[in-house]
Design a protein around this nucleic acid. Structure first.
Lengths: 116, 116
DNA sequence: TTGACACATACCCATATAGGTATGTATTGT
DNA sequence: ACAATACATACCTATATGGGTATGTGTCAA
């Protein structure tokens, strides 16, 4: 089996750096494809394809405006990612570093006790 | 160009569901490959390969113990993901929904004013 | 109506998978 | 020394990719 499709879920969709860049740009508000093309310095078809992926996983939505297509962010589609990674937030917090030190000391004391 | 390697960064590494599952399992503490194999219901070579990817991006670390290899989580490697997605947390919070409603009302009032 | 514009889609190609199977390597027990 | 155990790695295959280029589709202006 090959790798899962980029359109499988948000996890796969945001693995691509340009797509995260697009999301960051749309955080500032609705934008047309042409603007994104200029800001990204990518070809227009490439940008359109990235936008398609983001659309399919629900991270962005489109709106027609004359001959332009305005894309906007739908941040809630990123919630599953946040929910998952949030479980590990404590693992790099300063508070945890302290707790970790304490636990290490406790284990050390236990080892000393067993040495007797 | 093809898709970026899974070992490029944590974003690519965690796109694979089984690798997230491994991370979740290791959150409970150090585990040998064989235990992970049983818990995942995957082949041993497959698990070893997933572990290799996670090792290369620094999400897990290994320790030799006899003929076993004990893997442990290094959660701090997930920080970049958390840092990135945290910027969008407000977009689905209840608090934001309320702010959004208020803004919508404000815009509506402005439109009414212009109608006069 | 015609041309210009904004965007989407259809191809082509090189590449990196993820799973499966077979095999190599190091450690342990007898 | 030898078999068994625990992992890692090599190889194969089907598949989806991201960029590039060419082309299709819908909208606007003259």
């Amino acid at each position: 089996m090959a790798r899962a499709a980029t359109t499988t879920d948000a996890f796969n969709a945001i693995a691509e750096p340009r797509r995260r860049e697009i999301i960051d740009l749309l955080a500032g508000g609705e934008q047309a494809v042409g603007e994104l093309v200029r800001e990204l310095g990518l070809g227009q078809p490439q940008v359109s394809k990235h936008l398609r992926v983001l659309r399919e996983v629900g991270v962005v939505a489109v709106r027609d405006h004359g001959r332009q297509r305005l894309y906007r962010l739908n941040g809630s589609a990123l919630k599953p990612i946040h929910d998952w990674v949030k479980n590990y937030e404590q693992l790099w917090s300063e508070r945890f570093e302290l707790i970790d030190d304490v636990l290490t000391d406790l284990r050390k004391d236990q080892a000393d006790d067993h040495d007797h």
